[in-house]
Structure formats: C-alpha cells, structure tokens
Design a protein around this nucleic acid. Structure first.
Lengths: 343, 343
DNA sequence: ATTAGCAGTCAAGGGGCGCGAGTGCTAACA
DNA sequence: TGTTAGCACTCGCGCCCCTTGACTGCTAAT
C-alpha cells in the first residue's frame, strides 16, 4: 500500500488537473464523471483515501472533497517534465524580432510576453554577470576631477558610473591610465579581475584601479529584477484572501528572495512549490534566460500552487530554447553562416 | 451655513487628525475628549451635521461616527501646505552621502529611504529627459557591422545601445561619422535634436543619423519607475479588504498611471486624493526630485486616503530641498570652494 | 477487488436576537 | 441665538441556532 499503483497515479493526476481549473475540492463523483466513468465512486473513494494517507491529498474538512497537497503538485510537475520537448513553437514572435536596443529592452519585452501569454505574474531576474569578458574600458573626463567609466564587455555595456580622480589631473593622465587599465583588464573575465590579483604596477594609478575594481564588484553582485503583471494575480480566487495576497506581495517585493527562488543550479526549469520551498500557497516556475547565447538570468512565473504547470512550463521552455538558439544564429534575422556571432 | 466657520475648521481638522491615526469612525464624544473639552457633544454633533451636509464628512451608517470624505482630506492638506517651510532637516543622512554610482543607485537609495521613513509604499518616477544637453556622442565599433552608441549628456550616460552599420565599413568610417555627429549634436538639448531639423549633410551617413535620433527619441519617452516597500501597505487596516489591495496593486503596476499621478505641473508638492483623482480609496503625495540640481523625476508616496500627510509632506519636502541644494553646492558634502569632491 | 447503500459529518448560508455605540431631535436654559 | 442635557431611535456586529446539501467512510453483498 506504500506504492503508487498505476491507477493511483492516474487518479492523482486527475485530481490535480481538475483542481487546477476549478480551484475547488474535488469529489469522488467529479472524478468519476470527468476521468473514470468505468469505476464506481466508492472505489475511487477508497483509492483517494490511500493517496491521502500517503500525503498526496488533503481534505479541507471531513465532509469535503480532496485538494492536492504540495507533494501532489510536485509529483504532477515531475511526471510532466518527463515529456518536455521542444514542441510546437509558440507564437513568441515578439521575442523573435529582438530589438537592437541592448539587453534591457529585450528583457522587458520578454517578461511582458510571458505574463501576457501565461496570464500569471511574471518575473525576470538578472544575475550577477561575473563571467563576462571585459573588452575595453574607457575613461571620459567630465571636469572637476571626475571621470565617467565605461566598461564594454562582450555582453553589453555596464552602466554608467562616475569616479573621482586625484587632484589636478589632466587629459594626459586619463589617457595613460586608460591604456594601463586596458592592458591589464581587457580580455579577462570580470570574475578573474575582481579575484584580486590585479594590481596597478604604478603607484600613481592605484586608487583608480581600486575604484574600477569596486565598480566591477558591484556589478557582479548584480540582481536587477523585473516584475510584470502583478495585478493578474487577482484573476485567481485564492487571492480573494488577503493573507495570500500579502504573501504574494511580500515575495515579489523581495529581490533577493526572487533571486533565490528562480535560481535552479544548472537545471533548465525549476519549480518551487509551497511553504517548504519558501512560497506558502504559491508556486514559482522559472527557466534560464539567455540573450545572444549568453545566459543572463532567469525568467519565471509566480502564481497559486494550482498553477497551470503544463502551459507555463511549455511557454518557459519555448522561450528558453528560442533565446538559446540565437547562439547559433547570430543576432540577425537571417541565419546564413556564422558571420555574425553575438553582438 | 454655507461657510466654514472657524470652529468648523478646527472640528474638521480634528476629525481628519483622529481618523488618520485610528482608522475608525470618529464620534462626537471622541472629539470632545481629545480636542474640545469645553463644548458639549451635542454642540459638536450639530456642527458635524453641518459639515456632513457640506460634503466634508460621511457616515458609514446612520448610527456610526463620522469619517472624512476626500474633500475633507483635500481641505486638510491644503491648510497644511500653507505652513510648509524647510523645518528641521530630517535625518536623511543616507541621501546625503550620495554615492558615486550615477543616478540609478542614488535614486534607488532615495526611494528606499522614503519608504522606510514614512512607512508607506514609495515611488520614484523618472521622467523623459528631453532637456538634457548632449555632451558627446561616441561610437565604438564592435565588429560585424555593429557599433555601440554612447551618448554622454550633462545628466549622465544614456544607456547602451547597439546600432547596425552599412555593409563593409571600417574604423575610418566610424571616426568620421563620429566627428560629424558630434559636430551637429554636441552642445544641444535632446529636445532640439529630436525636433527634426538635424540632417546629415552627407548622404553616406544619413541612415546612421536616423538611427541615433531614433535612439534619442526612445529615451525621451523615458519613464523608468521604481516602487519600494509595496508590502508595507498591509500595515494599514483598510488593506484587509482585498478590493483595496486590488486597486493598490493595479495602480502601482501601471507605469503610465504612476507617471500621471506624480506629475504636478511645476508644483513642488502634488497631492492626489480619492476616486476623483484616479485613486479610489487612496492618496498619492509626490514631489519633484532632483539630482545634482537637475530635476530628473518625482518621488512619491502612495497609501490610504487617511495618510499621515503631515509626515509625508515633511519628508518629501525635505528630500526635495536637499536634492535641490546640491545645485548651489557643487555636489559635495563640504561646500568649501568648488574644488570637486562628490563621492 | 469492486460495488451499492446508508449513516455520519460539517461548511455554508440564513434568520432571529440582544448589545452598545452613536446619532438626531426636542425642550430648556443663558 | 447659540448651547446644553436628556431621551428615543437606529443599526452594525457578534452570537447562536437551524437547515441544507455535499461529501465521506464503513459495511455487507457481489
């Protein structure tokens, strides 16, 4: 009685499936009608009792139908994951026409699309980018002993930052500093630069080096987060209860929490379900997200535990594949040759 | 009976004041106790009846105390605004030590401080920046017929963008394009550049010009929005009701709505209260926000209609003054000379 | 192993009731 | 004329009780 028989599995899927659409406790009769017309409700009941004992199902109260536990959802998505393949490519055209505008706007568009297509609140968590290769560092004097640092990497330009220079420096100083910096940083990854083994040979530039390395460190910690469609949550009846909304809002306002939730170590798709995974009465599905073949973060969806996992996983998988394909593809619309690898 | 007598005014303020802290209907007895021990509750009642008739007060039901209407709040803040002066500078030290990191992180810090100090959800709406002066435009070739455009203005660097070049261009092309572009754009405001009167004299560079102007246009539409402390809202009992939370969440997820709500034309402090102003059961207080003497957007606070306007207005005013003072000050903490500094 | 039938359980919804907070009105008073 | 005390009235709220109906678990027969 400890093992999931085949029928129990089908039953379990039936319960989860129904509950995902109805959001109300599922009775034995309902299952019989919708899924297993050839066995009696009594049989179903006894099977359900078994599943309940195993912790897959829960009864809100003794005379109510069954509701899936987190464990049930877990089972459900796990069995779902087994046949995840790149199926019919969903109409994510929008993402296809990836704009010229640099990472930020692509990301914004993507997160919007995900939210619209799935009808859940969607997330984009950009992560620290410590494996970017620094291509070039530029210093632009701004007068008043300040200069703008522009760090160009193979993944785009790190955002603007101003540093201060020692008293009384001139353009010449900037130029020599610049070439010195490029000499020791260009071509290396951010990780290795911030690793600490880089020292300006020249005492005069030490402070400058330190400032730039600090900037880089800051970027590494990264963690921009975009949330789209937060109000979509009210489409789901569980959010008539303020407590749940509270939990939801609290999660999506904590950037670090989101970061943690969406980061599956290396896995393509991560699914976190329920309180044990830090999201009471909620679920978070997330996938790696890449632009131009480089992984820059994770896209995700957050919603009720009875999320439409099928749909969500499909959408995220598709998006993931799309964004990865670009690697081969250059960033042009035509894919002739590899004449134009990444940006 | 159509005019607000002096006593009525005091009474009105008393009601709003109490309600702001208690969130419960105010009875005549409560007012007598806390504000006017020298008149009887009966008198107060008859006065309140008058105020109610004038539309300042509302009774949830016939045997309940009074609750302020939006009109009452409006009166309240208006009378408040008359004695807004720079009072005791609040401990906004955090803002003082404005970091080196450029606008973005200053803004993030500011919005966080506002939320923490006021204990409301705070907003920062960055606006289109069409009066920035373009200082310099740089083109950095990236190979593969693409180039990075870096537009340096007196307000910082506009974000990274990649453009495509005509086939078969080389460094020389970039260089001459660059100087041509700078020749016609440097020193001018974004508004005037996008105004449309700039044309590349040379046919060869026309496409390039157009792309850059398009980029600028995009920036002008601007509208970055930061929201901090969204979950603080649950500290206030009106948000036990899901409907209100719904309204709240819906407002803070609409960037354009936030933009509209916080933009008071030229006014230092804007206060929008209630449904007539687009925020049912809520209020939004906002102020201009400047960095280094340049106005870059608006900070604001959103919360229940019975917001602690005194506190909020004080905080925002102070922050506004602080950020404007920098204009005079250079951008350093010590104001000796203009020797530079910042950090 | 499955089924029909039956008794048991309990959430949800509705009506009735008493309490108490707070009002409006009226008549008396300064 | 403005203020006050007193009183009757109103109505939301919480409480209890009841009924209904949707389920289940159990048992005995197939």
């Amino acid at each position: 009685m400890d093992k999931l028989t085949d029928r129990k599995k089908r039953l379990l899927e039936a319960v989860v499936d129904s509950y995902i659409t109805s959001a109300e406790p599922i009775s034995s009769a309902a299952i019989q009608q919708g899924y297993m017309p050839d066995v009696s409700t009594a049989t179903i009941r006894s099977e359900l009792a078994g599943l309940e004992e195993m912790g897959y199902l829960v009864k809100p109260h003794i005379s109510a139908g069954r509701v899936p536990s987190s464990k049930a959802y877990r089972f459900y998505v796990d069995s779902l994951m087994q046949n995840v393949t790149v199926q019919d490519i969903l109409t994510l055209e929008e993402e296809g026409k990836a704009r010229i505008d640099g990472v930020e706007s692509i990301v914004k568009e993507a997160v919007k699309v995900v939210s619209d297509v799935t009808n859940y609140t969607s997330l984009m968590v950009l992560e620290g980018v410590d494996d970017l290769i620094v291509r070039q560092v530029k210093l632009v004097g701004l007068g008043d002993n300040t200069a703008l640092v522009i760090i160009i990497t193979d993944g785009g330009v790190l955002k603007d930052s101003v540093i201060t220079l020692p008293e009384g420096t001139d353009e010449g100083y900037l130029e020599s500093a610049c070439s010195l910096i490029n000499g020791s940083m260009a071509g290396r990854s951010i990780r290795s630069i911030t690793g600490g083994d880089i020292i300006s040979g020249v005492e005069e530039f030490k402070a400058l080096f330190d400032q730039i390395i600090n900037l880089l460190k800051q970027y590494v910690s990264g963690g921009e987060v975009y949330v789209e469609g937060a109000d979509k949550i009210f489409a789901y009846p569980e959010y008539r209860d303020v407590e749940n909304v509270k939990g939801f809002l609290s999660v999506i306002s904590q950037k670090d929490k989101l970061q943690e939730l969406t980061s599956g170590d290396g896995v393509e798709i991560t699914v976190k379900i329920g309180a044990e995974e830090g999201v009471k009465n909620m679920a978070v599905v997330s996938a790696k997200y890449s632009v131009s073949g480089r992984q820059i973060g994770h896209v995700g969806v957050i919603g009720p535990e009875r999320m439409d996992y099928k749909k969500v996983i499909k959408v995220l998988t598709t998006l993931g594949k799309l964004s990865e394909e670009k690697k081969e593809d250059g960033n042009g619309k035509e894919k002739a040759g590899r004449k134009g690898s990444d940006v």
